[in-house]
Write a protein that binds this DNA or RNA. Structure first.
Length: 199
DNA sequence: TGACAGATGTACT
DNA sequence: GTACATCTGTCAG
């Protein structure tokens, strides 16, 4: 149930490290697949050395400097896409990386995209896997998650259970800042890996 | 469990 | 031109 009378987009305003955990338990849908979000990370724009927005706005990260509730998609390691929900007011460049989820609808489609041999638990466990399961690519960058488009975010289940906190995965700067949030005990959460370049 | 290849955009020199 | 990235799958041990 959703007791708030505010539009869902307004729930994404505020400091991203406080907003990000409220995305846990929400559902993200795209192209016939829906996932229940189990793990997120906060990236705090120009005040966060690990953020793509740390050095200010560029063509790549421009979406994060726009209004909240839009999808910032980036492509990395030459083969993986990852999805962020833009948070905070326009201009600050903050967002929440959606790191993992449980596929709750469209399992067949997700498996087609991820491969027939992939275990159900691994369909969307990890940011690259989640984007692939949902069929999200750079073409979806900038999509409004609260409009009548192909990508939709439904924020109505928080808090799901106890929220656990720890350092973010794979970041070499600000490697100890505890801005990774996941649903405690949930099996659909990725493994922690510290960046090999972290101090 | 751990090391590493894989492939390309981005930011910085 | 160069280093490296909000990663994943595979193979050695």
């Amino acid at each position: 149930m959703n007791s708030s009378h505010h539009p869902p987009r307004d729930r994404l305003l505020g400091p991203v490290e406080l907003v990000a955990p409220t995305i846990l338990g929400a559902t993200l849908s795209h192209a016939g697949v829906t996932v229940r979000i189990t793990e997120v990370e906060a990236y705090a724009g120009e005040r966060d050395p690990a953020s793509h927005a740390y050095r200010g706005e560029t063509a790549r990260n421009a979406v994060m400097f726009g209004p909240p509730g839009h999808l910032y998609v980036y492509f990395t390691y030459g083969m993986h896409h990852a999805c962020n929900v833009v948070c905070g007011p326009a201009g600050v460049g903050t967002g929440a990386l959606v790191r993992a989820g449980e596929v709750v609808d469209g399992c067949e489609l997700a498996r087609d995209r991820r491969g027939a041999r992939v275990r159900e638990r691994d369909l969307a466990r990890g940011p690259g896997r989640l984007a692939q399961a949902l069929g999200i690519t750079l073409a979806d960058g900038g999509a409004d998650l609260f409009a009548d488009g192909p990508a939709r975010l439904v924020l109505d289940a928080y808090p799901p259970e106890f929220v656990a906190t720890g350092p973010r995965v794979g970041v070499s700067l600000a490697a100890d800042v505890p801005w990774r949030f996941w649903i405690a005990g949930d099996p659909y959460v990725s493994d922690y890996k510290r960046s090999p370049r972290a101090p």
